[in-house]
Design a protein around this nucleic acid. Structure first.
Lengths: 336, 336
DNA sequence: TGGTTTCTTGTAACCGGTTACAAGACGGCT
DNA sequence: AGCCGTCTTGTAACCGGTTACAAGAAACCA
């Protein structure tokens, strides 16, 4: 009762209590084989008595390994990121790793600070920053920290990348809409400066031109609101349209809501398509035709690569994943 | 070129390079005022030259503070948790704290390990475990680690709690359905052993009995699939029903999907209601009537309380938040 | 019996920061 | 000049673990 009630027991306290050396306590807790059973028992009793829990921070420092992975995201809004995070978390748990979240909050200065703060906190980084030029970011960072890039602009100094083939995906979607008999296909773009958005727009333009159709692009922002605004504008400007291909699902959903409010039927009057296949896409009605990315799996793969990289294994430099067309009722009534 | 290329520069390397003591380097990096400008400049130059980034782990150890908050969740599935996480992340960033994720994966043994692993890694814990008896959990943990409980079973050894008044919310929902003229109101329950689910069921039963109606409860699991199964069962057993109150929104959405597939109109034939007001609830059609919890705000409040607790401030022991009724078209056509 | 091998255990240095304390430098005052 | 207070800087201990190394004990063998 006279001991220090405040503060946790340390390994030295346990050693004293069990009348052994700290090395032995360490050995017991790390399950090293060369410990006499009697001594092991004594240590365990002492640890129980003192309610000892090893201090992970100290352990990390001396082993130069934290067991944590830093995840740098631009935002946590919407299902896209939560799906990705879910995939990452599952894979990380398999490898006995934790996830340390760090939101980039769209501000690059803040992002740099956030990244630097990660040194000594994590063993590696997953960076998802479609909107930011990574050279500025990584220039501030020691080049030796392992990192895997998800859907980033193509720089990042030769680090392994995972990417969705947005150009091909957008092209496939345009062709699908054409197959459905649509000709006046309008694209609602993603935010400016976002590589994924730019690639999808590029894929759209190419496919339209290849089919001899005139591309029409409206601005957007990857959110529901911007889909609604796009529809307003279509109506205000009396633009001829029989299909709207939005840069992502949330925008497409905004489009559908606005059309519904306006009394325009989907898909008979206007077909709607999105991109990402967020869980929600299946649940709205009509179901949303979209390009499936398997977001969670992509997150999991990213973690997997990163863990390999941390463990010093060879890792493919770049993987381009092909999204798959998911046809639902928003583009074609026979579906589902 | 002959130096060690491998490994980061440490504070001692910088000190040597700038020909000052480690204490001075530390002072410069921590912006302490008592440093001569000339020396400060020298240190900064040396740091730049060596591309020095302070090692957060070492700093944490010597300061006994990590700047990280551990978040223990049962699962990451669905919008409920992602919304909560989003709220937490925002608030944490305001306080310059990171979030360390730890999934409980429904297994209590795993959960205990996960919690113990947190010592020395985080300054405090947010625990959300509606399905687990916390006494077993916290018994394994040094009592001195700060923690805030979110919607947990009422134990946790006197730690601050935040909770939704699920009983009252369920009651209000039942009364709303009755006001809409419904009498045969069936409840689809949440998973067994989950306090929130149990409270909602209790609120439902009480309100039904108070109105002189007979409660009918079907099993469920908080997911879409269980909502579908519940509808199948209602049909198979020919149960009389004019309203279905599901224990949460995902279940309610499953119910709506199944009803739609079956050709039953919502709300004219059967009204549907959920609980939580996940973002999705607004987007399905018809819009889902539900109890709004403001999940993100709840997460933010939890972080806020925890930070105060870590900083040694007084924190209210318990807060019971009242959810608000959100009426949409799934219960009442005039709405929206 | 003594020598060699193997197994167990302890001592102390180390991981990379922070910080209490002491000492030196400098300026102002009598 | 001598004394004192203030400001800057360095030395070394410390945070709580891990682990290289050495030493002692035990087992085995000739």
């Amino acid at each position: 009762m006279t001991g220090k009630e405040i503060g946790q027991a340390t390994i030295r306290d346990v050693a004293r209590e069990a009348d052994v050396s700290v090395a032995s306590v360490s050995r017991v807790f790390n399950r090293l084989p060369n410990v006499r059973p009697e001594l092991k028992e004594r240590v365990e009793q002492a640890a129980r008595k003192l309610n000892y829990v090893p201090h992970a921070g100290a352990r990390n420092l001396s082993m130069a390994r934290t067991g944590a992975i830093g995840v740098v995201l631009p935002d946590l809004h919407g299902e896209y990121f939560s799906e990705m995070l879910r995939g990452m978390e599952r894979e990380a748990a398999l490898h006995h790793r934790h996830l340390l979240l760090s939101n980039m909050h769209l501000d690059i200065g803040y992002g740099i600070d956030a990244l630097r703060n990660m040194r000594g906190r994590v063993d590696g980084l997953i960076v998802m920053a479609p909107h930011i030029n990574l050279d500025a970011l990584f220039a501030q960072l020691p080049p030796s920290i392992p990192a895997v890039l998800l859907n980033c602009q193509d720089n990042g100094q030769g680090r392994p990348e995972l990417r969705v083939d947005n150009v091909a995906g957008a092209g496939a979607m345009v062709r699908h809409l054409i197959d459905c008999g649509r000709r006046a296909i309008v694209h609602v773009e993603g935010p400016a400066g976002n590589v994924e958005a730019a690639d999808r727009a590029r894929g759209y333009v190419r496919a339209m031109e290849a089919a001899g159709l005139k591309p029409v692009i409206l601005p957007g922002n990857f959110d529901e609101e911007s889909g609604r605004r796009a529809v307003d504008r279509l109506q205000a400007e009396q633009i001829d349209v029989d299909a709207i291909f939005a840069a992502n699902d949330m925008t497409a959903i905004g489009v559908m809501v606005a059309l519904r409010d306006m009394g325009v039927d989907v898909p008979t009057q206007v077909a709607v398509a999105g991109f990402d296949n967020i869980p929600l896409a299946r649940l709205v009605s009509p179901g949303l035709t979209t390009m499936a990315v398997d977001i969670a799996d992509m997150g999991a793969r990213g973690i997997n690569r990163l863990v390999a990289l941390i463990d010093g294994e060879a890792v493919p430099q770049m993987e381009l994943r092909q999204p798959g067309l998911i046809i639902r009722n928003s583009s074609q009534l026979s579906a589902a």
